[in-house]
Design a protein around this nucleic acid. Structure first.
Lengths: 220, 220, 220, 220
DNA sequence: GATGAATGAGGATTCATTCAT
DNA sequence: AATGAATGAATCCTCATTCAT
């Protein structure tokens, strides 16, 4: 139940760095490591250098804290993805998007785990999480995929769009959310710089394979 | 914290069907839905028609119960996979393996969620889980992939084997472990019969695409 | 909480040696080591090679078992003491009584601890314990002491009889009931053969000192 | 299991008198009456006017609480004894020491019972109890006794020092630790003022007898 | 903003005991 | 005579939360 590797992001500014942020940092790390139920308010508070009672000066609830963590973490991720994806030429943009996502997730590796936990358990916040954040994104991606498949260039049918997007989501998120398992199974830390680069290259290559070769094959 | 949809597998034979199995059934469902920490022994016991105290006549611990759930669930899965995968012609076997896995997971959809939770949190049992069950499987799959890539047929290099296997793992497991999220995002239940069939067809097609077209492209 | 040194008296006749006695043996040892509340029926049963349920075929409750232990242990002790003490010439008998008591207690060292626990806590059974067993004994001893002091030989007054008897009781019982503490404090095991012999000699000498020198001093 | 006679030391100042001390008071009384295992945290808390949960704001453990009780009780006792015993002329000081100890124990009669329970069961804390508190004291007493016996004045040999000290310890502590039993057996409350005075006089007399008459007798 | 103290609800687990087999 | 399974009550302790200071 111990998880020693949880790093304090900015230990330099211990006192300031606005308490609220310190709480959010620790909460994010703990929620990602132990899930909502497995994380105690006391743990979060103590790690942030506070009494549990003091924490309630900043967040009204454990639940509100959790939501705040989710929002603070997910919002910029989504924005970033939105920025990256809102372009035209998929062939050109694809690699850039993939690289961008991977880089961002690498720097905020708690998030995919957080989302994976929510996704698997169907937690209470899954609803707003999916409605507010993820759904807009996937809708956008699905639309883009459909555009391309309609043009007949890819070899994938329009109906396959959700499946393809889902598959990509899983491959990208999975690399981070299952990092502890992959580390044990593959013998390498998926979050290490080189491993991330490899994975990024692999995904880019896969994207190319999927988009090009679909043509020459046709539906089944 | 709501979990209305948890089904009792065989409500017909309430009394018999040996208590121990009833406990394991309920525990599996609850652990998969709420995680280890989020699941109370009382809940499991009550659902199995027992007092918490009685449950301790069958399992010495919440932890031991969890391990038993894991083992009972994972072992046949792994065996099944092993059986399926131990054959020769990948082009022929591939689809069969994929169909087999998908069918099995569909019938035991708690497992992927259970594993995803363990994988994300790096729980205490992750170690034996990976060492005893998952690692043998991935090692086998990686070896098979390497064989094929060495023959030069696939267009993938030997070094990419772990990445590919990892990707496949995530796509297959992800479909189940993120089912609640996908349900919300895509508007369809990933566990519905038709959705499963589509997904299976999609993965088979993707496998074909990857193995054939890799050739005509080469490394990056 | 472990107490490894608890010996099984007769491991030769494991099966037979009438279960009931095996239970009593283990119960005596455990009650003496951990007190009534600190001893669980399960522990006793398991040590006796039984299921707790089976134990209830021999004793109707934990309490009845405790009483049985007390009785089986105390009765022969008291009888022995009674035999020893029912003689005339204190100067001659004294040493024999002391030796006898010490020898008996040495062989049943659980008893003094058991009694000390009851005595200190004023447990529920203290009443019958004192009324039925101890009181008759002390009354007898007090009477003997009074006889002697009346004769003017000892230098102790009649009123001091209870105090003297009490003191002797404490010295003799204390050597056994505080054995664990004395072991730590004095660095020697009070139950070892040589230590017992020393203690016996010391007490005999003390008895002589008390009975003789009282004369030459007088009441304060 | 009944313990009707437990007195609340200072019921006057119920609210204040710092909660922590109230807890310690009640815990001391209960531990002494029922032993560690027989005392429930709930009981202690309720008697101190608290919820069990609140008690944990003051002590992290039942065990920690027990240790605190032991320390708070034993420390001043030991200090007192140390003060009393650190003087020169045994013939003069002896009575003063005995009176001092008896008076102190009379006012803190829980302690001897507490120690007797630990001593009899060889509890987990016996080790530090003996090492930190009791051993220093007995060592000092033994040294003093040896000094005297070396001077040839007492008639006791140096080797008998531990036995003598042990005997005295048992007589003094025993009077309090076996108080409930003695009350039943002797028909008088050993903690009553007159009984205490008698016992004190008796012990002083006994000390005189031992130290003086030893001379004229010699070793056996 | 921070905290010590308080608390009701609930956590896992053990207890002594029963009963059908 | 022995046992596996069941249970209500009690065990110690943690939880999220509140409130006066």
């Amino acid at each position: 139940m111990s998880s020693p590797e949880i790093a304090v992001e900015e230990p330099s500014t211990r006192g300031p760095q606005h308490t609220r942020d310190r709480i959010l940092d620790e909460a994010e790390a703990l929620f990602a490591h132990k899930g909502f139920a497995g994380t105690s308010v006391r743990d979060i508070a103590n790690r942030a250098g506070l009494t549990p009672a003091s924490l309630y000066n900043h967040f009204s609830n454990k639940d509100a804290l959790y939501r705040a963590v989710l929002e603070r973490g997910v919002q910029p991720l989504i924005e970033r993805l939105g920025d990256l994806a809102s372009s035209e030429d998929i062939d050109v943009v694809g690699p850039i998007v993939i690289e961008g996502i991977m880089a961002h997730l690498a720097e905020h590796s708690h998030l995919p785990r957080l989302i994976a936990l929510e996704a698997a358990t169907g937690g209470e916040h899954l609803n707003e999480l999916s409605r507010n954040w993820i759904r807009p994104l996937t809708d956008q991606a699905i639309a883009a995929f459909k555009d391309e498949s309609k043009s007949g260039a890819s070899g994938w049918s329009v109906e396959e769009a959700p499946l393809a997007i889902s598959a990509w989501m899983q491959m990208i998120f999975g690399h981070f959310s299952m990092a502890p398992l992959l580390h044990e199974v593959l013998g390498r830390d998926p979050l290490s710089k080189e491993c991330l680069e490899e994975q990024t290259r692999f995904l880019i290559k896969l994207a190319r394979v999927m988009s090009i070769s679909g043509k020459s094959i046709g539906p089944e």
